[in-house]
Design a protein around this nucleic acid. Structure first.
Lengths: 209, 209, 209, 209
DNA sequence: CATGAATGAGAGTTCATTCAT
DNA sequence: TATGAATGAACTCTCATTCAT
């Protein structure tokens, strides 16, 4: 059993190693122009080896989203499990958490948002798709629980907390995509942080009694 | 002169005809899997002909966004130019307008949101890119003017109207992408309308004094 | 009859006009990258019209050679028909004539040399091919007659004058192609004239008793 | 180390295999009409594989010239390194060598002469172009050394040996191109050998004191 | 497990040529 | 005679994926 476990761990390590390489390549070449061979070279492996760890290119791409979702969940749970129950402070912490996730890896996060509504999604193995669904669900539920508490404390307006979570998530992804877009098109400054700040402020005002 | 005008009109009609065909193919095959030949076949033209009207595939793709942006602007300007000055009613009209734009062509709108933060954008002719930028700018400015009025009337909180416009646009795109994603992943009902409704409600509360 | 003649002349003028345009485009874009549309645009005609005057692209290309061959013949006959019968002076005149032909239009001449041993030749209409053959033959014969005279006057060695003409023509084309090639590859000075000078000198020494 | 060497050799063999196939196709279809797929089929490989060994079509074409230039150099150096120092005998050997090169592969040689003054040249990788330049230079220098010796021995006239080499190379290429052309146009006998013979004879007379 | 050469379908694009007007 | 929009075959080249070693 020990051996099998170690093997398992080693396999997982290799996967991570490949994903790290993939991220590095994406950052320099952009998603659409990155080939499997590029990634293999960066990972100092052969193209064929990549297919021992990922069923195909789409799965490799999608796997990147998993990591960031996992990170998101950790941060969100941390917010929920804290002592502080003051909704205002929790909202603040939520905002912080989400911005951290953005900063953790902007490129990958944007890729994940793209992934959300693309054909790619349909081509994934049921396992991977299931995992993504689970993680997404968990994230949203964790967020919802924050709102839930706020509603119960009569601090937030009486609205379905799940819907609130959907909206905050939409706001988050929308701001990042749009501000990134503006940055690219107009070669302008990065307003993600400040816009996110304002967006959260308005959102909070909007749900506060 | 009449002849030249007619030719011009015919050329424009052809362009539209190709774009309509493109949309039809996209709807059935999805964006990434649609080839120029598919579109040509659907338009009952030869592949070469497509290139008489669009410089390349990316330009054809991007041109689709143009139409929807134009429609958006018309709807937004209509909101602004109406007699009604009551901010609440205007917000209601704004929401209606944006939802109409979504219903006008969901696929194309989603594609446009994807386009926003992709490499494709960099490969467009400066002319087309310029046009997209102009239309985007105009849309945002028109939205901003609504908030501007509301602020001046002391009905909305004192926040940069341009930032408000950015946020409402982000919210709009974010909700659509996320709800569509959920619909696809979970094979569930389409919650775009209801979530958009809630999102606008919260947003309005959030900016109202 | 007058009318038909005029029509004929006008048709010929149009042909010339197209050929002039073609030459201009070749000079700027190079042969392989010039399209029929380029030529049409330069000639301020439509692509279709080109096909009223030339059967196809190859024929248009080949026709360019015709003009230069005609010019060559005129110059050669001038050399032969002059009063001077001194072989040395005639050789000098021959050299002058050939260099003039080169300077008349280097690009077209080089194209003609390429044409000589290419597949294109086989795709020409029999008429055009026949004309090229005739003009070539005439050129070579005219040259040969110069050598013939020199041989009869016992000034040149006793060798088949036709072969001498072939060799002088080979030398001419070979020097031009090779010196042009060196010029392009090494970005060096144009040595066509000086090398041609030396080549003729050696050739003359070689056939002089 | 042995393994890497073997791989290297195998790679080189594949390259040769492709080049041989290419030559075969060229011989039957002519250069301009040969497609990469034709060559792939002849080599019993897939089109994609060709691109593992040659960067693009032009490079494959140009590579063919390399081999013949290498063969030329070997033959020329052999002439120079022989015991015989008698200029007349050396000229004879030079002629033999060049004719052998022609017979080694007429099609490829002609193609190389075409290549010399075409746009293709400019599109090659600097490495390949550099190699071609080096080999050309070496050939010409080796030839020049023969003339150099003859001049020093006071057997040849006092002319720049480099220029002499340029001229003999021009004569060689010119005769081959022109005689091949005549053969094709007039469906006549092949006079390359006899004309080359005469040409060398005249050239030698021309440079001999 | 790992390799990496080979695959081969398929993409986007070009352009000589045609033909209805 | 002139047009020029339309054609469509043909091209080069890419790259995710496989499989013998």
């Amino acid at each position: 059993m020990g051996i099998r476990e170690r093997k398992e761990r080693e396999k997982e390590r290799r996967r991570q190693q490949i994903m790290v390489a993939a991220k590095r390549v994406f950052s320099t070449k952009g998603f659409s122009k990155t080939t499997m061979e590029d990634i293999a070279k960066e990972a100092e492996l052969s193209p064929g080896t990549l297919y021992l760890y990922f069923k195909n290119k789409d799965e490799l791409y999608a796997s990147l989203s998993l990591r960031i979702l996992q990170y998101l969940i950790i941060r969100l749970e941390h917010v929920v499990n804290q002592e502080i129950k003051d909704p205002r402070k929790r909202m603040e912490a939520l905002k912080e958490a989400m911005y951290d996730v953005y900063e953790f890896d902007p490129m990958i996060l944007i890729n994940m948002f793209h992934l959300q509504s693309s054909d790619t999604l349909k081509n994934l193995t049921p396992e991977l798709l299931g995992e993504i669904k689970n993680l997404s669900k968990k994230s949203l539920e964790t967020m919802a629980s924050i709102f839930q508490d706020g509603v119960q404390e009569d601090y937030f307006i009486n609205k379905n907390p799940i819907v609130m979570a959907d909206i905050v998530w939409s706001l988050f992804s929308g701001v990042i995509l749009w501000e990134t877009s503006k940055k690219i098109i107009n070669n302008q400054k990065d307003y993600v942080k400040s816009t996110l700040e304002s967006a959260f402020e308005i959102f909070e005002r909007g749900i506060t009694k």
